[in-house]
Amino acid sequence: MEYFAGLDVSMEETHICILDREGVLIREGKASSTPKAITAFLAAGPTCSKVVFETGRMAPMLFHGLTELGVPIVCIESRQAYQALKSLAGHKTDRNDARGLAHLARTGFYKPTHVKSLSAHAIRALIAARKKLVGQRVTIDNQIRGLVVVFGVRLPRALSPSFKDAALKISDGVPGLHAALRGLFAAREAILTAVAAIDGDIRVVTRRSEVCARLMTVPGVGPITALAFVAAIDDPTRFKRSRDVGPYLGLVPKRHQSGEVDYTG
């Protein structure tokens, strides 16, 4: 007899449901949302041939942790699971969601999704942190421009050395404006220091990566672009054809079909 399990994951607890091939409930309950706790709960029941759960914030940690512990875990897209669970479950509860996911595992009515490696997520975190800091720096630059334009001053490019000097020069003798600019520039300098540190880390990572070095031979591709592409692809073998990469990244070619005309552009 085959057995199947569904996991409805939250930050603290995971609801678990185990069904047999006929859909009969064998065991259900809760466990802490850690690979060891979930594995211990599953080990106390019959051996499951498939364990299904949805994508989410906890998915990378649980997927790779459970895989290392020998659990036949499968991750499915949450939007696909949502449509299926609407028809399988009645009230929207964690218990019913776990049971619905177990039914999906039993019927095979799902499409597995790739879970990126933890190293790829670490690279994405580095790039996301840089993007956030650069956005905050731009926000501060715009705030500074807005404060001094009242006094009829149009500042030069934000990253030029004269940007700070021109702003502070106009604020001399204006106590309120001078204090405001001093505070903004202090925050700006701290952000620029943090961005420079992250840029150094990115350069170190790209130097260690043979793939990044190869990508940077393409004109216009620098360390950030190369690293972002590598983190997005993660495992190239999951694509059957190279042309599948474009649609995966959202670059779908336009198509016009009418009668004998079939144009893909």
Rank of each mutant, 00 (worst) to 15 (best):
T113K: 09
S78V: 15
T93L: 11
D94A: 13
L85H: 07
R79A: 13
A98K: 07
T93V: 05
K86D: 11
D94R: 08
G90M: 06
D94K: 12
K86H: 01
A102H: 09
A84D: 02
F109V: 07
E77M: 04
R106W: 05
K92F: 09
G108M: 11
L85K: 02
D94C: 10
R99H: 13
R79W: 03
L104T: 01
D97K: 04
D97T: 03
A89E: 02
Y110S: 05
A89T: 15
A102D: 05
K86T: 02
N96S: 14
Y110R: 06
Q83M: 08
T113L: 04
S78A: 15
S87N: 02
R79M: 15
T93I: 04
K111D: 08
Y82D: 12
G108W: 08
K86P: 00
A98G: 05
Y110P: 00
Q80R: 10
K111C: 08
R99V: 00
A84L: 11
R95G: 03
L104Q: 01
K86I: 00
G90W: 10
A81H: 03
L101G: 05
D97H: 03
S78T: 14
Q80S: 11
N96E: 14
G100N: 06
A81K: 07
H91Q: 14
S87A: 11
K86Y: 00
L104W: 02
G108T: 07
D97Q: 00
P112Y: 11
Y110G: 01
R99I: 00
L88V: 06
R99W: 14
K92R: 13
E77Y: 10
K86G: 00
A102M: 11
F109I: 04
D97Y: 03
L88S: 01
D97G: 05
L101P: 01
A89L: 07
L101A: 11
H91N: 13
H91R: 15
H103K: 06
E77G: 06
I76S: 06
K86E: 13
E77H: 14
Y82M: 09
A105H: 12
A102P: 00
P112I: 03
S78Q: 13
D94T: 11
D94G: 15
L101N: 09
G100M: 03
L88M: 04
G90N: 14
D97C: 00
L101D: 08
A102W: 04
H103R: 08
K111L: 08
N96H: 10
K111G: 02
A98C: 01
N96R: 12
